Simulated scan of single mutants.
Amino acid sequence: MNNTIETILNHRSIRKFKNEALTPEQIEIIVSAAQHASTSSYVMAYTIIGITDEVIKEKLTSISGHEHVRNSGHLFVFCADLNRIYQLASEEEQEKMKESIESTEQFLVTTIDTALAAQNAVIAAESIGLGICYIGGIRNNVKSVNDLLELPDYVIPLFGLAVGYPDHRPEHKPRLPFDEIYHENKYDMKKQASLIQQFDRELEKYYLSRGQNTRKDTWSDQMIRKYTTPIRMDVTKFIQDKKLNKR
Rank of each mutant, 00 (worst) to 15 (best):
R201G: 12
N213K: 14
S220F: 01
W219S: 10
F178G: 01
S209M: 01
E180T: 02
D221V: 06
I224G: 10
Q212F: 12
E204Q: 14
I181H: 02
S209V: 00
R210E: 14
S220P: 11
E180R: 00
I181S: 04
N213L: 14
H183L: 03
W219I: 05
I196P: 04
D200E: 07
Y182K: 01
E202R: 05
Y207L: 03
E204T: 08
K216I: 12
R210C: 05
Y207K: 02
Y207S: 03
I181F: 07
T214F: 03
Q212G: 13
Q212A: 12
I196R: 05
F178E: 12
M189K: 03
H183M: 02
E202P: 02
R210G: 09
K216E: 15
R215K: 14
M189A: 03
T218N: 13
I181L: 09
Q198D: 15
E204A: 11
R201F: 04
D188H: 05
Q198L: 08
K190F: 03
Y207G: 07
T218P: 13
Q197Y: 08
R215W: 04
L203R: 06
E202Y: 07
W219N: 04
G211I: 07
Q222A: 15
K216D: 14
M223I: 14
S194Q: 13
S220D: 13
Y206K: 04
L203S: 08
R201H: 14
H183G: 00
L208R: 03
L203V: 07
W219E: 10
Y182A: 00
H183S: 02
K190A: 06
M223H: 11
G211K: 10
Y187C: 05
D188I: 02
E180S: 07
F178V: 06
Q222L: 14
Y207A: 04
H183E: 02
Q197T: 11
R210N: 08
K191W: 03
D221Q: 11
D221R: 04
K191S: 13
N213I: 07
L195S: 11
Y182W: 03
Q212H: 14
G211M: 01
K205E: 11
Y182L: 02
M223W: 10
D221S: 12
D221W: 05
D217H: 12
F178A: 07
F199M: 08
K186E: 13
T218F: 08
L195V: 08
I181D: 03
D200W: 02
